[in-house]
Simulated scan of single mutants.
Amino acid sequence: MNDSALIVTGLPIALGIIMFGLGLSLTIDDFKGVARTPKAVVVALAIQVLVLPLVAFGLVEGFDLDPLLAVGVMLLAASPGGTTANLLSHLFRGDVALNITLTAINSVLAAITIPVVTNLAIGYFDAQGELGLQFGKVVQVIAIVLIPVGIGMWIRRRSAGFAARADRPVRIFSIAVLVLVSAGALLGERENLADYIQKVGLVTAVFCLASLTLGYGGARLLRLDERQAIASSMEVGIHNTTVALTIALSVMGSTEVAIPSAVYSVFMYVFATAFGYAITRRHEQAGANPSLPIS
């Protein structure tokens, strides 16, 4: 599977299209959102960029994963928030503008955080093989993450109508690619799948719940309002697993490293929906009964 043209060439192209679609949904004003809500942006980014890798490292150490699976979990932790977080945030009455700002900034930061966190993990866990993201591979990560976003933003600036028409097809394409790549990664390791699920299933489930809880709880603890906390929760809990899968499969050439992201991509939508429903239901009940605490 790792040597197929579909993975080596097709998957980066598919991710480029997805990131291009993300660029079509962004404007320079989205990055300026930092000035409007600096505290909310800093809190969410700190949780995602600094806290999540530490949580992932603690889980990997606690569950004593195999080196390649451990690297896969750390790669997942370093991946940026997914654009679906915007949709879920809207569904559960979060601050979607904050989500858009965070997605924009995170898409840029990922070009730095992914190589740094992944290389540290490869060194610490002594993962075998030529996995390191050396300079050439770092450039490849930047090319498939940043350049398409920039092109998409430029085209939106030139033709907002085209950007609006392309939004839905690109979103559908993004979901299709995620499903196909996740299924392909799991099927590609079908002989070892039961063992991998046993080893990494609980880790990824706990990590997903921890991400959602930290995103919401950390925001509330630092006195962000309810809408900002919901946005933070979805942004921190929903990862762009397509980025992590593409890097694992086409850049690093390892299906085993991709397994945690493939499993997480199944859990995150189920858990995020349930989590969003639970916190909004609790908030509504607290509003109806003032004796119940909201935060």
Rank of each mutant, 00 (worst) to 15 (best):
L202M: 00
L54I: 14
N192W: 12
E256Q: 07
S107K: 03
G161S: 15
A194E: 05
E226R: 15
T204G: 04
F267S: 09
D195R: 08
T27G: 14
A185I: 09
Y216Q: 03
T280E: 10
L91P: 13
S25K: 12
Y216E: 09
L24H: 03
I155H: 10
E284A: 13
S254I: 03
W154K: 09
R227Q: 12
L131T: 02
P53I: 12
S25V: 14
F162T: 01
H239G: 12
E284W: 14
V200I: 11
A262F: 07
D126I: 08
A104G: 14
C208V: 01
F267L: 09
V149T: 04
I175Q: 05
S107N: 12
M74R: 04
V116N: 05
N289C: 14
L193P: 12
N119G: 04
A176G: 13
L292Y: 01
A111K: 11
I155M: 10
A56W: 05
M153V: 03
A272T: 01
L98Q: 11
L15K: 00
F173K: 01
I259P: 05
N192R: 11
S159W: 14
T27L: 13
I144T: 06
K199D: 05
V145Y: 03
E235M: 11
V141Y: 06
L45Q: 11
L91V: 14
